[in-house]
Simulated scan of single mutants.
Amino acid sequence: MGRVTSATLIAAQAGDGEAFAALVEPYRRELHLHCYRILGSLDDADDAMQEVLLAAWKGLPGFEGRSSVRTWLYRIATTRCLNTVRGHARRPRLEPVPPFDPPTPSKAFDVPHLQPYPDALIDELDPSHRAAARESIELAFVTALQRMPPRQTAALILCDVLDFPLREAAGILTTSPTAAKGLLQRARASAAPFESRDATAADRDVARRFAVAYAQDDVDGVISLLTDESWLAMPPATECYVGRAAIGAFLRASAAGRPGGRYELVETSAAGRPAFVCYLQKRARGLLVITPSADGTAIASIMRFLDDGLHRHYDLPDVLD
């Protein structure tokens, strides 16, 4: 690309804050989404974006226009996120201690920092980018990204999600095209396949039936909606329960030992799936994300995010009116 000489860029490089805001605003949402894909956490993506904008403001006077402003910002964002992962600089999240004796889990859930991305934020993207963005926030895909080496994750996102040419992606990663190609090949080989599809009316119906049963502590009702291979995970807790019997045992223990009565659920949408913010005694107590089966007649997985501040990302109140 040729040297960027727009009046907005020149003014921003001279220290004009309004010009800087105008320069980066078209890329702010997509950069936040990029940080989320690498980090797997909304909170960490928020923190990373603050660092990205500060680094861009400080570094803009030295920007020579050898790449587009967008590519330059992606290089800053990618570097900051990889540094966060390498430096273990995520927001601390303590594993909650349940107020009851839970049954023995089936296995461990190994991505305790995972948080779901609100669908409403995808609507803020340019319409031409929304379909691909929705696919790339599905929890199965984001979880798979978190299990890869970070630079492989970044290479896969840059090339296969954002469609950067390999040479440009290599520049963002500050490596050679040959090395970037190797990272991409290894990432593609290890990426777990998953089926992406838009939520259907059947998905929403089975999710709402689940919500009614869950809110009433109707464990048998919940179990009747599960597939044979259903599982329940509860980040940042590391327990995972697989199968109807294991999930049922946990839900019964939770219902019997939970202080404060039953949940109220408020419907929203996250990670391309039906979701519900949980309220206990009118106060927000985390989020449920439901993955229906392929035909929408049952529930394949339940993600219960035990983060009492997560609802704020979904523009929902701390306390129900």
Rank of each mutant, 00 (worst) to 15 (best):
G2H: 09
G2A: 11
V4S: 10
T5G: 00
T8V: 15
I10L: 12
Q13G: 07
A14D: 08
A14P: 01
G15P: 02
D16M: 06
G17F: 11
F20H: 02
V24R: 11
E25P: 02
E25R: 15
Y27G: 04
E30G: 06
H32G: 15
Y36H: 12
R37H: 11
S41M: 09
Q50G: 15
E51C: 03
W57P: 00
W57R: 09
W57L: 10
K58Q: 13
R66E: 13
S67H: 10
W72G: 01
L73Y: 08
R75Q: 13
I76T: 03
V85F: 00
H88N: 10
L94C: 04
E95A: 13
P98Y: 04
F109C: 02
D110K: 12
V111D: 06
H113R: 13
L114N: 04
P116E: 09
L121Q: 15
E124S: 15
L125S: 12
L125Q: 12
P127W: 09
S128N: 10
R130A: 01
A132E: 13
E135Q: 14
S136P: 03
S136L: 08
I137E: 11
E138D: 15
L139V: 12
A144V: 08
A144K: 10
Q146G: 14
R147G: 14
D163Q: 15
A169D: 03
A170R: 07
P177Y: 10
A179Q: 14
A179M: 12
A180Y: 04
G182W: 09
L183Q: 03
Q185Y: 12
Q185S: 13
Q185G: 15
R186G: 11
A191Y: 12
F194C: 13
R197C: 07
D198C: 01
D198Y: 02
A199K: 08
A199F: 02
A201W: 05
A202H: 14
V206S: 02
A207M: 02
R208S: 14
R208G: 11
R209V: 05
A211I: 01
A211Q: 01
Y214W: 07
Q216K: 15
L225D: 01
L226I: 00
A233E: 11
M234S: 14
P236M: 03
T238N: 05
R244F: 02
A245K: 10
G248L: 11
A249K: 05
S254W: 15
A256E: 15
R262T: 12
L265P: 03
E267K: 13
S269A: 15
A271K: 07
R273T: 03
R273C: 08
P274T: 05
C278H: 04
Y279H: 00
L280E: 08
Q281D: 10
Q281G: 03
R283P: 00
A284L: 01
A284E: 01
L287W: 02
P292E: 04
S293T: 08
D295G: 07
S301E: 09
S301Q: 09
I302R: 01
F305R: 06
F305A: 04
L306Q: 11
D308T: 14
R312L: 15
H313T: 10
D315V: 13
L316Y: 06
L316R: 10
L316M: 13
